[in-house]
């Protein structure tokens, strides 16, 4: 056997990347730095999609702003790259109007927990139907390494040049206390565990949260003299402890301390939509009209939605 070297989109003899059905390979190489962990989580997501047997037409992916905020742009599904912090409320709208689909929020710690923190706790409280995947790299990477609500104490950031002294959020603790129905944490080294968690969580309803600790090689690791992303991957190997029954007190992450990972919550609790439906049915009886969905009454073989309506020919473009 010999090494086969493949260039993107070259001769037809070379098989496509196995994930090219799920990822926008026409946009590769992506924008993430060398030794960044985000790409790994996206690969795991693609694997989880394969394992669930879901088609990309069964899901939407929404991101906010930041490095992980770009994930939506690389997943070959209907995908939304929204504003900073607002991926969760945007998805609230998607999920309530298209309850037939799986809705995934894929974003970073700064986006979801700092500027979007209020949305995070309220969506968890209401058990809104979505899977939230947070890639936590302990910093604002795209803007150059500022202090995040996850930055461990003593870690340095451009806006904490003498090291952080703020207590960071433990994201699983936050999600658990706000009422999420599924909560797990892994590091980007736990590729099979991440994939399994994503697979499992994709099949659940309600607010599901997976935190993935991932290396930011260029910004966080360098500023904190931790080597490269590869060194951080080795650190995860040596310092992550799987404990599904960990108490919330064990879930805090100190600077280069041990990281407790695992699946902490997996419970059945009615989602917002289900609670709403059941409540109104009980209170209003047959006066209640169940919510209409944005799903169109057309089967999958259809090739256009508006054949019966006036449409303008898109070939004639003025631009």
């Amino acid at each position: 056997m010999t090494v086969t070297e493949v260039k993107p989109d070259t001769t037809r003899k070379i098989p496509e990347h196995p994930k090219s059905l799920l990822l926008r390979m026409d946009r590769m190489p992506h924008i993430w730095c060398s030794r960044c962990g985000i790409g790994i989580t996206v690969g795991c997501f693609a694997s989880a999609m394969e394992k669930t047997g879901l088609s990309p037409d069964d899901i939407t992916v929404t991101s906010g702003i930041g490095c992980t905020g770009r994930v939506a742009g690389y997943v070959k599904a209907d995908s939304f790259h929204t504003t900073h912090g607002r991926a969760i409320p945007f998805t609230v709208g998607l999920a309530l109007t298209r309850p037939d689909l799986k809705h995934v929020v894929f974003s970073g710690d700064g986006d979801l927990i700092s500027i979007g923190g209020n949305h995070f706790i309220h969506a968890a409280r209401r058990n809104q139907n979505m899977l939230v995947i947070c890639v936590n790299n302990f910093t604002y990477a795209m803007t150059g390494g500022q202090l995040a609500p996850t930055t461990p104490v003593t870690a340095r950031a451009t806006t904490a040049p003498y090291g952080s002294f703020e207590r960071p959020f433990s994201l699983p603790t936050l999600a658990i206390s706000a009422g999420a129905s599924y909560v797990a944490r892994w590091t980007s080294l736990h590729i099979r565990r991440i994939t399994d968690s994503m697979t499992e969580a994709l099949q659940r309803r309600g607010f599901r949260f997976i935190e993935i600790i991932a290396p930011c090689s260029t910004i966080y690791a360098r500023r904190n003299k931790l080597g490269t992303g590869l060194d951080l991957m080795k650190y995860y190997y040596e310092n992550s402890v799987i404990d599904h029954n960990a108490s919330v007190d064990d879930l805090d992450i100190g600077f280069q301390s041990k990281i407790v990972v695992g699946k902490f919550v997996d419970k059945d609790r009615p989602s917002y939509g289900k609670s709403m439906h059941e409540h109104f049915r009980k209170v209003l009886g047959n006066k209640y009209q169940p919510p209409v969905s944005g799903k169109m009454e057309i089967d999958k073989s259809w090739s256009g939605c508006t054949e019966s309506q006036d449409t303008t020919v898109t070939d004639e473009v003025q631009s």
Partner: peptide, 11 residues
Amino acid sequence: VYVIKDRCKGC
């Protein structure tokens, strides 16, 4: 094993 060399960032 297949490698798309120009996509690699050498991590």
